[in-house]
Design a protein around this nucleic acid. Sequence first.
DNA 1: ATGAACCTTCCAGTACAGTGGAAGGTCAAG
DNA 2: CTTGACCTTCCACTGTACTGGAAGGTTCAT
Lengths: 129, 129
Amino acid sequence: MKIGQVAETTGTTTKTLRFYEAEGLLPPAGRTASGYRDYSEDIVGRIAFIHRGQAAGLTLAQIRQILKIRELGQTPCSHVRDLLGQRLTELDAQITELLALRETISQLSAQAAEPEPEACPADEVCRYL
Amino acid sequence: MKIGQVAETTGTTTKTLRFYEAEGLLPPAGRTASGYRDYSEDIVGRIAFIHRGQAAGLTLAQIRQILKIRELGQTPCSHVRDLLGQRLTELDAQITELLALRETISQLSAQAAEPEPEACPADEVCRYL
DNA sequence: ATGAACCTTCCAGTACAGTGGAAGGTCAAG
DNA sequence: CTTGACCTTCCACTGTACTGGAAGGTTCAT
């Protein structure tokens, strides 16, 4: 399989595949006599795993960690459990923050909707903020 | 007022103030004979405005837009209304997305909590993802 | 007069996940 | 034999909001 085909079947780009390889997320690809990358079929599963990790909100650095552990022949289970738990905590914090922000903006927006455009004081930048 | 004092009263750093000036968020400061920045008192209000804009989740680019409109002598009211409305829409989308992600992670996490560490198949990277 | 504490400019780097483009090599079809 | 589609490397850039540090000038107290 050459790189364009892998890109197509996995829904990425050749650029991204080379980037992943350079970043250590994919093993160095085999090469043809002329230097073209020559992938075996199982690269597809690995890329799919990366995508699932991303869909779970993990960073490429975290995904790389999991992959490295697996490469060392160990089962990354407990590490993954930790990462998922951590991610859950982060998500909750993030959601709470966004909801608070939504409240703030919502109120500002409601004030800004009142039709008194002339009331803007000249010495302030904007009475809505 | 010199830069250190402005930084202190506004809760920023001198670095940030110079950065804001370079980015066009603050007008070029006056200078003393020896080249030190010499601010008038009203800079404090302007910086506070920038902070309120940030607290509302606006980017520096958006805040700069509002400031520019105001500098042209116009009232930026309708623009601010648009920005706030837009921001509200974005926030809602973002919150929805995060809640969905939370659901996904929550399920994965629950699966990963089950005590079957040996069940990990050797040919997959991790059965939890 | 000297040392600390301030100020100046400019360049470079941070994190994140890629993307863009130049310069050149390779492969298959017509 | 040449054209077009593909592949290679390498370097630089995107956006966001700063931050770090070097090299040098100024101000003030002792």
